[in-house]
Amino acid sequence: METIVTETTWFAACRVEDVVENGGVCVKYENQQIALFYFTRRNEWYATQNECPHRKQMALSRGLLGSTDDDLKVACPFHKKTFSIRTGECLSGDECSLETFPVKVENGIVYIQVPLNN
């Protein structure tokens, strides 16, 4: 087995109060758009790519959050395709998936971990 090590960095995305409760906002990182979700009910944070892979629309941060069984999901506003915000897996039976990013909160600032572009 070959292990691939990707270098990552934490970047400060915004303050906690900038993010809508139980919803998402879109964060700009270099030329990327990242959807940041604040699951206030559970006090959990998640980040995924903002683009819905189904129709390539920059829209997931405007989607509805929810749960199914034990998984947490977001539904794209365009055609209601749902994705796990933990794993990025498509829950509507399609072959596509989302890139996900770790999130942490320190002193009221929300940080997202992204791969470093060398």
Binding site: L64, L65, G66, T82
Partner: peptide, 10 residues
């Protein structure tokens, strides 16, 4: 129960 979804929220 649970955390809601795109059906019950709207």
């Amino acid at each position: 129960k649970g955390d809601g979804c795109e059906i019950c929220k709207p």
